[in-house]
Lab assay of single mutants.
Amino acid sequence: KITVTFNGEEKARRYYKKMQKHNLKVEIRVENNQWVVHVE
């Protein structure tokens, strides 16, 4: 499981979509004013 933190929504969403293309289970959320993407 990987957790990647971004300081911008745009970058986070781009990464999220990229990971989805690989058929990975991805989850995006905001934690402590940071955009966090969890990849299983």
Rank of each mutant, 00 (worst) to 15 (best):
M19P: 00
E40D: 09
Y15F: 15
I2M: 10
T3K: 10
Q20K: 14
K18G: 04
I28D: 00
R29I: 10
Y15K: 02
K1N: 11
N7G: 09
T5G: 04
K1E: 08
K17E: 15
M19Y: 04
Y16V: 12
T5A: 10
N23S: 07
W35L: 03
R29T: 13
K21R: 12
K17A: 11
K25R: 10
E10Y: 08
V26E: 00
L24H: 11
I28H: 00
K17P: 03
H38V: 15
I2Q: 06
V4S: 03
N33T: 04
E10A: 13
N32T: 03
E27Y: 07
I2V: 08
V37S: 00
W35Y: 04
H22V: 07
I28E: 00
T3H: 06
V30K: 14
E9C: 12
E40S: 13
Y16T: 03
V39P: 00
R29P: 00
E10F: 09
K11G: 13
R29H: 14
Y16L: 11
E40Q: 13
V36L: 07
Q20D: 03
H22M: 13
T5M: 11
V36F: 06
K21Y: 10
K17R: 10
T5S: 09
I28R: 00
I28C: 07
K25G: 04
V36Q: 04
R14Q: 13
R14V: 08
E31P: 01
I28A: 01
V36R: 03
N23T: 04
Y16A: 15
R29N: 07
F6V: 01
F6H: 01
Y15E: 02
Y16G: 06
R13C: 13
T5Q: 06
I2H: 12
Q20C: 14
R14D: 15
K1A: 12
N33V: 03
R13I: 10
Y15W: 06
N32H: 08
E10P: 04
A12I: 04
K25S: 08
Q20H: 05
E27C: 07
G8S: 15
N23F: 14
N33Y: 04
I2K: 09
N23Y: 12
R13V: 07
K21C: 13
V37M: 01
V26N: 01
A12N: 01
Q20N: 05
K18C: 15
V39Y: 05
T3M: 07
K25N: 09
R29K: 12
N32M: 06
N23A: 12
N7W: 11
T3S: 09
V26I: 05
V36T: 06
N23G: 15
K21E: 14
K18Y: 15
E9W: 12
K17Q: 13
A12Y: 09
K21N: 10
Y15N: 01
V39S: 02
K25L: 09
V4K: 10
E31I: 14
V26Q: 00
E31F: 05
I28P: 00
N23D: 07
V36I: 12
K11V: 12
G8Q: 15
K17C: 15
V4N: 02
E40W: 15
T3R: 10
I2S: 06
H22I: 11
Q34N: 08
K25H: 11
Q20W: 04
K17G: 05
N7A: 11
V37D: 00
V26A: 07
K1Y: 14
V26K: 00
Q34S: 08
I28T: 00
N32F: 06
M19S: 02
L24P: 04
Y16H: 04
E9S: 04
K25D: 06
E27V: 09
N7V: 09
Y16C: 15
R14N: 10
W35K: 00
F6Q: 01
V4P: 01
R13T: 05
H22A: 12
V30Q: 15
I2G: 04
T3C: 14
K1F: 13
V30E: 13
K1P: 11
N23I: 05
V30G: 04
K21Q: 13
Y15M: 03
N32Q: 06
F6W: 02
E27I: 12
A12P: 02
V30F: 15
A12T: 02
I28W: 01
E27S: 13
V30N: 12
W35E: 00
T5W: 10
K11F: 11
R14E: 15
N32I: 05
V37L: 02
Q34W: 06
Q34T: 09
Q20M: 13
H22S: 09
F6D: 01
N23M: 06
N32L: 05
I2P: 02
R13Y: 10
V36E: 04
R13E: 05
W35F: 04
L24W: 08
Q20F: 06
A12D: 01
T3E: 07
Y15P: 02
K17L: 12
G8A: 14
Y15R: 04
N32P: 03
N7C: 12
A12K: 01
R13G: 02
Q34G: 05
K17F: 06
V4R: 11
R14P: 01
E31L: 12
E31N: 05
A12Q: 03
E40M: 12
E9D: 02
V36N: 02
R14I: 12
N32A: 07
K11R: 12
K25E: 07
E40Y: 15
F6R: 01
E40N: 10
F6S: 01
K18V: 10
W35G: 00
M19H: 03
I2A: 05
H22K: 14
R13K: 11
T5P: 04
E31Y: 05
Q34Y: 09
N23K: 09
E9Y: 14
M19Q: 02
T3Q: 06
V37P: 00
R14W: 11
Q20V: 12
